[in-house]
């Protein structure tokens, strides 16, 4: 993939420049919310701006907002757009990346906005039950990776799939991440613990040495903020310090919330994980 930016020359009035910049900011917010790192967001924005005919774009990308200035001829405009609600969506990242590469030179802001509306309308590609099942299987697989047997696999699957179902329902009702993660972690661990207790007679039947730990610990892995954690570190390596630090703090906050949710279950059931 070449990084070459295709440029287009155009004279803007101040209002037109404002409209164009607004469309470019929308692109940035969509890319950032879908889980891209700051430098990628910046790249996609710069490509779109050049195609629209903006001479120079300066963008300051942070995980909670984007500030951008557009210069063209003698005119310049600066706008800020807030970013709320991280929702990792690779399909959207791909669509926006391709859009920024294939927009014809001299595209109007209105056309770009129409494309963005279309991308925003595309929902999730998989039905909810498929997502819940796959996430369950993934957490079950993790319990085996860390040394569990197929009993822990089944218990972690049950816990994680239930928690993912709840999480999708809560996201739809616009719950804030922290309470959402606490509740989902408690549910995942609780269901997993219950299932492992139910399976207890099977330990003897099949001669399996199952431990509660491996199951319960793996059942909450669906909540680990993997994407923010990795992008935070990649941002830091790119010297996007503000972006990297704030993403890192977000990841730590979510990790603490997972632990709090787990603690609730540990207190109620009285068994220890560590």
């Amino acid at each position: 993939m070449s990084r070459a930016i295709r440029r287009f020359q155009r004279t803007f009035t101040q209002t037109e420049l404002g409209t164009a910049l607004h469309a470019v900011l929308r692109v940035g917010v969509l890319v950032l919310r879908s889980g891209a790192a700051s430098f990628r967001t910046h790249e996609v924005m710069a490509r779109c701006a050049a195609v629209l005919g903006i001479e120079q774009l300066e963008a300051y990308v942070t995980p909670t907002g984007i500030i951008a200035s557009a210069y063209s001829g003698g005119e310049h405009r600066t706008q800020i757009m807030q970013v709320r609600g991280l929702a990792v969506d690779m399909n959207r990242v791909i669509a926006l990346e391709l859009l920024s590469r294939t927009l014809p030179l001299g595209t109007e802001a209105a056309q770009l906005n129409a494309h963005l509306d279309e991308i925003e309308r595309q929902g999730m590609l998989y039905p909810r039950w498929v997502v819940a099942l796959m996430v369950g299987l993934a957490c079950g697989a993790f319990s085996v990776i860390i040394g569990g047997s197929w009993l822990e696999f089944a218990a972690a699957l049950g816990g994680a799939a239930t928690a993912q179902t709840l999480r999708m329902a809560m996201i739809q009702r616009h719950f804030s991440p922290v309470p959402l993660v606490v509740v989902c972690a408690a549910l995942a661990a609780g269901v997993c613990y219950g299932l492992l207790r139910l399976f207890a007679p099977l330990y003897v039947t099949f001669g399996i040495q199952a431990s509660l730990q491996n199951g319960v610990i793996a059942s909450v892995l669906l909540l680990v903020p993997g994407v923010p954690l990795v992008t935070s570190l990649l941002d830091l390596v790119h010297l996007d310090l503000v972006s990297g630090l704030s993403r890192g703090i977000y990841a730590v906050l979510i990790l603490v919330s997972i632990a709090v949710g787990l603690l609730v279950v540990l207190l109620l059931t009285g068994f220890s994980i560590v």
Partner: peptide, 21 residues
Amino acid sequence: LQALMALLATVGFAVLFNVPP
């Protein structure tokens, strides 16, 4: 077993991240 489980874990999370089929 590790290979199979890693495959399952990655694909599971890929579905969560809405990666096209």
